[in-house]
């Protein structure tokens, strides 16, 4: 019974995906679509296998930028959220700012950061990823640390627990799921930011630059192959964040 629904949950999406690819391939062939409009999946795959090592190089450049920013941004975000949970005035000051940053295409700051560092460095890109991740983590973890159930806090007060103990026994455990929610958003966002940053000029060695340069040379199937690499990178980051969440969850239930 359970196995059956599980198979269904895999088979149905799988067949949707296959049908989609077939339709795509078919449309390109039947209507003889020009490659600049839509490249055939078979061509894209061919390019992907042919250029695997180059795509891997580009992916590792963008991936490293994303990873460095993700780690630093997460650490800073967590640290700051502890500060915010301690001083509610600061919290009220920063939270609206962080929320309104959500509505802004904040990555345009790369244009400014490129001037603040030397143009041939990866630092501005990593800085940008850090900034994006920092605010996502900050808002969520601060929420987890402050929005605890008042009955729990009262219970701890009745044990005459100190603030540090309340932090360790109530606030931190409450904030853990919030952290992973944040990471699930921040991980793909870090990849996106990393290679959107490349559109602003500077070093031409990452996925974003490769995609633009291939299109400029009308090698669209190759560009699609790099897009495929970008998608795999995003998926990898997301998957890792989910696995991390699963591991901590398991620890909880034991």
């Amino acid at each position: 019974m359970k196995i059956l629904t599980r198979i269904k949950n895999i088979l149905v999406p799988l067949s949707f995906g296959v049908v989609f690819l077939l339709l795509w391939e078919g449309a390109v062939r039947v209507f003889d679509l020009k490659p600049y409009f839509l490249a055939a999946p078979s061509k894209i795959f061919e390019q992907f296998t042919k250029n695997t090592s180059r795509i891997w190089d580009a992916t590792s450049v963008s991936g490293t930028n994303a990873l460095v920013g993700l780690i630093i941004g997460t650490i800073l975000g967590i640290a700051m959220s502890f500060v915010l949970s301690r001083f509610s005035f600061l919290n009220q000051l920063i939270t609206p700012l962080a929320i309104s940053l959500n509505a802004i295409p904040i990555f345009v700051l790369v244009a400014v950061l490129n001037n603040m560092y030397s143009i041939t460095s990866e630092i501005p890109r990593r800085f940008m990823v850090t900034l994006v991740v920092y605010f996502i983590v900050l808002v969520n973890v601060a929420k987890g640390l402050t929005q605890v159930r008042s009955t729990h806090v009262e219970l701890m007060h009745s044990y005459a627990a100190s603030d540090i103990e309340i932090l360790r026994k109530v606030r931190v455990p409450n904030a853990v799921p919030y952290l992973f929610t944040a990471l699930k958003v921040a991980a793909p966002a870090s990849v996106i930011t990393a290679f959107v940053s490349e559109y602003f000029g500077g070093l031409q060695n990452g996925l974003g630059s490769r995609i633009t340069s291939n299109i400029a040379n009308s090698k669209n199937a190759a560009a699609w192959a790099y897009v495929l690499g970008a998608c795999l990178l995003g998926l990898a980051f997301y998957t890792v964040s989910i696995i991390l969440e699963k591991i901590t969850r398991k620890g909880e239930t034991k």
């Binding site: 600049y36 974003g208 995609i211 897009v227 970008a230």
Partner: peptide, 16 residues
Amino acid sequence: SQTVPLIALAPLVVSW
């Protein structure tokens, strides 16, 4: 699709 950088398609789509 929320997790993959669809934005990578930007130069492609604009080239239409």
